[in-house]
Design a protein around this nucleic acid. Sequence first.
RNA 1: GGUGGGGUGGCUGAGUGGCCGAAAGCACUGGUCUUGAAAACCAGCGAGGGUAAUACCUCCGAGAGUUCGAAUCUCUCCCCCACCGCCA
Length: 429
Amino acid sequence: MLDIKLIRQNAEQVAEKLKKKKFDFDVAAFRQLDEERKQADTESQSLLAERKQASKKIGELVKQGIPVDEAKQTVNETLAKIEEQLNALKQKATAASEALEALMMSIPNIPDDEVPEGNDEDANVEVLTWGEPRQFDFEVKDHVDVGEEVGGLDFELASKITGSRFAVMQGSMARLHRALTQFMLDTHINEHGYNEVYVPFMVNADSLRGTGQLPKFEEDLFKLEGEQNYYLIPTAEVPVTNIARDTIFEEKELGDGLRFVCHTPCFRSEAGSYGRDTRGMIRQHQFEKVELVKMVKPGRAAAELETLTENAEAILQKLNLPYRKVILCGGDLGFSAQRTYDLEVWLPGQQKYREISSCSNFGDYQARRMLARWRNPETGKPELLNTINGSGLAVGRTLVAVLENYQTADGGVEIPEALRPYMGGASKL
RNA sequence: GGUGGGGUGGCUGAGUGGCCGAAAGCACUGGUCUUGAAAACCAGCGAGGGUAAUACCUCCGAGAGUUCGAAUCUCUCCCCCACCGCCA
């Protein structure tokens, strides 16, 4: 959520900046709603104040020994007048502030000034490339064919068990997939200083509102039947970031920031992506991800996004997978994000770079929705935190990248050096 | 599923109809003292809205109700804890 004071003072500038995100902010509608709310609020407040005074007076009279009924007589006129109007005004005030709240919740975050203009991913700007795509002296297969050749990767079986966009892995393939997860976790914990955390894979609606998936993106989520309105998590970002919801951290608890690494499955309905990436395990309803989440004092967020992204890049580098880093343009930027870097790994089977990580700075946008705060000793007041997160990395897609980049002429797959300790020392699949 | 006990400020915890936005302690901030620190003592210290600043309003798990007036009484719901049953 944006700061409503900021909008009140700079509505036109805010609207202008949101254009970069292809969001049309109706300033006039906002102002009218805000004005309505304020007026209804002020009126009902002054009535409440009057009633409070009257009640207090009765209390005083009663204490002086005057009978209750007699005491009531003295203020009867005031109270009768108030009761008439109060209910209607209260309702009006509630309705107005709910409408305003709903509007505020539907406004996306403002992009950074450095975010490039553009409508879609084609306008994203390359920041750097790392590594050289390997030259193959045989015909490259995509991961589906590689998987079929070495065995242990089965989409048809998954389709029988559940449906499309799922995978079954067996034997060494399943182990390689697990090895990737362990390798990523160990690297982030031991070398990058993140704190491992295990969280629920189902969350309530409040948590999803906090990080910005609700109210606007319900159709992307799997919602569970039953009395509790729980949802399967689309990313660990949701449960991990909500660790800080409705919390005020003391400065010493916060230190120079909270850093979490968390491995979870992720569940996405992929509504509206019919026909896209239907082959293989690029786009699944269920996939594993190792997520990095930081919650820091404002001011250091921009720098923390840079290091978080580098932490994710380190995984690709250790696996020796060629990739490029792009900064997302306004039109491709997520709802809650100020600035996002995508890491795209080279996939020989597609002859393309494909997204394998997305690292974003949300500023105080999520924190304001969540009321995630820290007590600033300089002011003594609770102030909003800044949140940053990114994939480090999407495990399923990393497996795809390993299978495709490390395939051998004889139909096998070489195991990257970094993963061998996790594979019992094996060097080939 | 059953029975019982609870949800109050950053934390612990008192408060059963008006004097309560709320005792006390911890934490925090400022001061006295000290060469410095600690201790001790004194003072301050909830959150949100609103205002130029005051006023003023809201908030004691959530919602509805009773009442002139609700943290306090009634109802519904949610959550937590303990014990029993079942269970990975």
